[in-house]
Computed example of a mutant assay.
Amino acid sequence: MINLDTNTAVAFIAEGSPVRYELRAFVKKQQMVIAQTAFNEFINIVQYSAGSLEQTRANRFLQRVIIVQDNPSAAARTLRPTRSLDVNDIIILGTGDEMGIVTMTADAKAVRAASSQGVNFNVYLHLPYSLTGR
């Protein structure tokens, strides 16, 4: 299994995303999961920023992802939010940590901020890509 954060889910559905192919190659046939917090953020972004092509792709994407309950690890719960690491980052990264799986993210700042507090998450970092509105 692989945990997806919000910006990874966006990169999977963004029109013209060159990152999508890299993400697909990494995931291969592994089951993708998304924490409830990441799912909620993703749905909000899609609702307000996605164009029709991206909304269609989001619907197909969500059929292949399992939504899991937020359940951050004990290590994640020790983290203090900062400008670079917000509560949702802690929940999403921590849920993947609790599950013992890799979290795909483009949020290198959050990963570094957690590391500076002594918590190192198992992540696959990729370049960010935003929705185009198409």
Rank of each mutant, 00 (worst) to 15 (best):
E98T: 08
T105K: 04
I90G: 00
L4R: 01
A74R: 13
R57N: 06
Q31R: 13
E54L: 05
A58K: 08
I34E: 00
A75V: 00
L79A: 01
E22G: 04
Y21C: 00
N40M: 11
F12A: 11
R60A: 13
V27D: 08
N59C: 10
F61K: 01
V19Y: 07
A113E: 11
T6I: 04
R64L: 14
A9S: 11
L131D: 00
N71K: 13
Q55Y: 04
G133F: 07
M1H: 11
V27E: 02
A38V: 07
A74L: 14
F26H: 14
L62P: 02
G16Y: 04
R57Q: 09
R64V: 05
Q117S: 10
A58G: 07
Q55R: 15
A11E: 02
N7K: 09
D70W: 05
L4C: 11
T37M: 06
I67W: 04
S52M: 12
Y48R: 15
A14V: 02
V27A: 01
I45V: 14
G118Q: 10
R112N: 13
Q31P: 07
T78P: 02
V10G: 08
H126W: 06
I34R: 06
I34F: 01
A50N: 02
D97I: 07
S130F: 12
R77G: 05
G100K: 09
R64G: 12
S52L: 12
M104R: 02
D89G: 04
D107P: 00
M1W: 00
A9H: 05
L23D: 01
A114E: 06
T132F: 07
V119G: 04
R112H: 10
G94C: 08
I2W: 10
L23K: 07
Q63F: 05
N7E: 03
F42T: 10
